[in-house]
Design a protein around this nucleic acid. Sequence first.
DNA 1: TATATATGCAATCATTTGGTTGCGCAAGTT
DNA 2: AACTTGCGCAACCAAATGATTGCATATATA
Lengths: 124, 124
Amino acid sequence: MIAYIFATDCFHKQTIYPMRRDVFQAIADPTRRAIILLIASQAMTPNALAEHFDSTRQAVSKHLRILTECRLVQQEQSGREIYYRLNDAKLKEIDDWLEQFRKIWESRFNELDTILLTMKNKKK
Amino acid sequence: MIAYIFATDCFHKQTIYPMRRDVFQAIADPTRRAIILLIASQAMTPNALAEHFDSTRQAVSKHLRILTECRLVQQEQSGREIYYRLNDAKLKEIDDWLEQFRKIWESRFNELDTILLTMKNKKK
DNA sequence: TATATATGCAATCATTTGGTTGCGCAAGTT
DNA sequence: AACTTGCGCAACCAAATGATTGCATATATA
């Protein structure tokens, strides 16, 4: 009931998993990407999530476990329901990885600039 | 020899793989991420790449195959060597995926704005 | 032409992965 | 107190994955 929604101190199975996986492995599976997208706008329970897929609740639960293990997702218990919410900060890690390449391409542009500049000077 | 460097019309084993894989699956493996990073600044041959890893050339070759299959990497043959280069555009797909979330967060901010605005108006 | 090098491919193997079923337990409900 | 519901966990299984070894072929070199 409503009385329990914010009673976050009375949970039981909200396991804290060791960080075994990495984010890249977590998003490799299409079902997990779908889950991430679903909970991006609002936290959802395993049962609610499972309704969006053909596979069983346990399968979804397993995916949630993996997502939780790599901290992409956080659990929030309210009564006997566990809401899973997206950990925005963890998605940032993917963006950080991409940033490396942006930098490499940028420096490549700079090199091109230098070359163009050299050619320009030679013309003089 | 130099004569062959641009002779791209005389290759033999430069197979065109069917697109079976997903970019997300491709970057799931740490070795593949390392390969991507290595060739980001300049194209490399399988042998040159293999020197950077403990595993055998064939293992690296397999990873290259997977990367090629999902178009993350392109082959460029010069003589008997095959240079693998990064396909920048494909990395963009990952960024596009992240963009979804940026939009969701943004709209969340907008909702917040609306709420704040409503509160403001009520105060009046 | 004979030999060395660069590479892809097939077969094989241990490990991981994604999924299913069955179960136990805590939290609600009647 | 008895029943229902939500959820995690263990056992099990088929398929995919990552790596190895051996082999075939094309290119380069002596």
